[in-house]
Design a binder for these strands. Structure first.
Length: 223
DNA sequence: ACGGGGATCGGCT
DNA sequence: GCCGATCCCCGTA
C-alpha cells in the first residue's frame, strides 16, 4: 500500500545511497490535528567518518545520541530556535544520517497553513525548519522509529528517479497524485546548505527543477 | 528581486 | 559565553 512505512533495510545502507533513494518518497506525519504528507524533494547526507559537518563528528553527546542508535529512527535536533529532522542510516554504532530539507506538500495543506502562519503555500515545507513546523516535528519525536507507521514514517512515493526507475533499488513505487507524478525526475547534486565546514562535499541531493526545493528559486513567478 | 542583518535558544566548551 | 545542518523582515532599486 502506498503509505506503508519503508522497512528497516531501506535505512541500513550508506547515507548517500539512502539520501538519493529518499527523493520521491513520501513523508507522513499523523498528529492530533490531522495527517500532513508530502513528497521528499531535497535531502542531505551526513557521513559517519571524516565529515566535520556531521553532528556526530566529535563523538556522542546527549543531543546526538539517536544518531548512534539503530537505523530507521528519527533524529531531531534544534538549531536557531527551530527544528530539523533526519533519518538515521547504516547501523547502530555508526552515526550517519540523512537530513530531509524539503517536501512538496500533498495532504494536510489546511493544517500546514494553520501552523505556518502567513507563509505562502510554496514555502510551507521548503527548508528543514519550515518542514518541521508544517508537520509539527519537534524534539519530542527524537528517537522515534520510522518503520512502525505511527506518528511519523516514510513510504514509497509517486516519483521515480531515472536510476530508481530502472528497478535497482527495489524500494520504488509507481503511482500518481502530485505535480511531478509519472514524469520521473532528474536528481540534482550540490554542496550542503548552511554548513560551515566540509563545504565542498557535494552531499545535497534534490529533485531537479522542483519549485519546492529550498535555496534561491529559479522561477520568478509569484506564488 | 535581492542581499544584509537580526532574532532566538539549546547544546557544548 | 559562543555558535549554529535557519528563517524572516526590511532595506534598496
Amino acid at each position: 500500500m502506498l503509505a506503508d512505512p519503508l522497512p528497516r533495510t531501506f535505512y541500513q545502507r550508506d547515507p548517500i545511497t539512502v539520501a538519493r533513494d529518499l527523493l520521491g518518497k513520501t513523508l507522513h506525519r499523523r498528529s492530533r490535528q490531522g495527517l500532513t504528507s508530502g513528497t521528499i524533494v531535497e535531502v542531505e547526507a551526513y557521513l559517519a567518518k571524516g565529515d566535520s559537518a556531521c553532528h556526530a563528528f566529535r563523538g556522542p553527546t546527549p543531543r546526538n545520541r539517536t544518531m548512534f542508535g539503530p537505523p530507521g529512527h528519527l533524529y531531531v535536533y534544534s538549531i536557531h530556535a527551530r527544528y530539523c529532522l533526519n533519518a538515521v542510516t547504516e547501523q547502530a554504532g555508526i552515526a550517519s544520517a540523512v537530513l530531509i530539507r524539503a517536501i512538496e506538500p500533498l495532504a494536510g495543506l489546511a493544517v500546514m497553513r494553520a501552523r505556518r502562519g502567513r507563509a505562502k503555500p510554496i514555502d510551507y515545507a521548503r527548508g528543514p525548519a519550515r518542514l518541521c513546523e508544517a508537520c509539527d516535528v519537534t524534539r519530542r519525536l527524537d528517537g522515534w522509529d520510522l518503520t512502525r507507521g505511527r506518528r511519523i514514517w516514510i513510504a514509497a512515493g509517486n516519483l521515480d528517479s531515472e536510476a530508481a526507475g530502472t528497478g535497482d533499488s527495489g524500494f520504488g513505487h509507481s503511482g500518481s497524485g502530485n505535480s511531478l507524478a509519472c514524469l520521473g525526475f532528474r536528481t540534482g547534486q550540490s554542496p550542503r546548505i548552511g554548513v560551515t565546514s566540509a563545504q565542498h562535499a557535494p552531499l545535497r541531493f534534490f529533485v531537479d527543477g522542483s519549485p519546492y526545493v529550498s535555496g534561491p528559486r529559479r522561477d520568478h513567478s509569484p506564488r
